[in-house]
């Protein structure tokens, strides 16, 4: 969008970025388990637990067949109705969720199986238990370990990409976003209340934060914007599957040293100077 067009938007008090935020949070939109079933059918076998503390239901993980190739899938799941949402803690993972994800990634590395991460979270859970069990440490460990994971990793943001809690599943070879998804360092409400002491200025904050798929693409933080699929649009899921498969094929062909070198370079250039 040109600057002139942006100015015009401001005059009309329309906030397209915040509309995207609302769309990304829409409780009727598809969640991670929907994408898994639509893309992988009944080939998905769910695997539970972090082997350390518990099984965090905000994170769903397992193995499925992508055509003839087994892949590890890890998604943050918000739940599709009230009961599920409570069970899934509204898609806000505890440290054990991130540790489960890392366990499954390490397992995938062992068998040289590509990893697909589906991100949909307002953020890592901010609570007493989460802090006591090292939320910061769990996220930090994922960032470190994913950077050198010796197998292809692809992340798709399918709704909200909430800060460190999303990044903990997004240190990948490529990151894609659905057209109605957002990815940000902080929620627009949080940003507006901290900076302007007024959470009702969230729409302005959403614009300033540059958090839409288009913004992130323009900032060269993501590789692709994916058209938002409707639930009944099976052809769209098939083409998404094909796209995922081609990306994995390309990265599986690389020597693992080359693969992790490229992953490092992908993040290394963000904010690099000179």
């Amino acid at each position: 969008m040109s600057n002139a067009a942006k100015e015009k938007d401001k005059e009309k008090e329309s906030f397209p970025a915040y509309e995207k935020v609302m769309a990304a949070r829409d409780s009727k939109k598809l969640t991670a388990v929907d994408y898994i079933s639509k893309m992988f059918g009944d080939s998905f076998i769910e695997l539970h637990g972090d082997r350390r503390f518990s099984d965090d239901k905000a994170v769903v993980g397992g193995i499925a067949m992508l055509y003839d190739t087994p892949v590890t899938i890890i998604g943050i799941e918000k739940g599709r109705n009230t009961k599920e949402r409570v069970e899934r803690n509204f898609g806000q993972a505890h440290p054990e969720g991130y540790r489960k994800a890392l366990r499954l990634m390490k397992q995938a590395e062992k068998f040289h199986r590509p990893v697909l991460c589906l991100v949909d979270t307002s953020g890592a859970y901010p609570g007493i238990g989460a802090e006591e069990r090292g939320q910061g440490q769990a996220i930090a460990e994922n960032l470190m370990e994913m950077m050198t994971l010796k197998t292809p990793v692809l992340t798709i943001v399918i709704g909200e990409g909430g800060s460190g809690g999303a990044l903990a599943l997004a240190v990948a070879d490529e990151v894609w976003m659905l057209e109605n998804s957002v990815y940000s360092v902080i929620s627009p409400e949080g940003c507006a209340s901290i900076l302007w002491k007024d959470s009702s200025k969230a729409p302005q904050a959403a614009e300033a934060l540059r958090m839409t798929a288009q913004d992130l693409f323009d900032l060269r933080v993501i590789e692709r914007i994916i058209r938002q699929p409707r639930a009944d649009d099976q052809a769209m899921f098939e083409s998404l599957k094909l796209l995922v498969s081609r990306t994995f094929e390309k990265n599986l062909a690389l020597d693992t040293a080359e693969l992790t070198e490229q992953r490092y370079a992908r993040f290394r250039r963000i904010g690099a100077i000179g």
């Binding site: 960032l143 470190m144 990044l167 933080v221």
Partner: peptide, 13 residues
């Protein structure tokens, strides 16, 4: 914004 968040991954790497 997001460029700040990405520094977490970059430094960790």
């Amino acid at each position: 914004g997001i460029l700040s968040l990405m520094q977490m991954a970059k430094t960790s790497g």
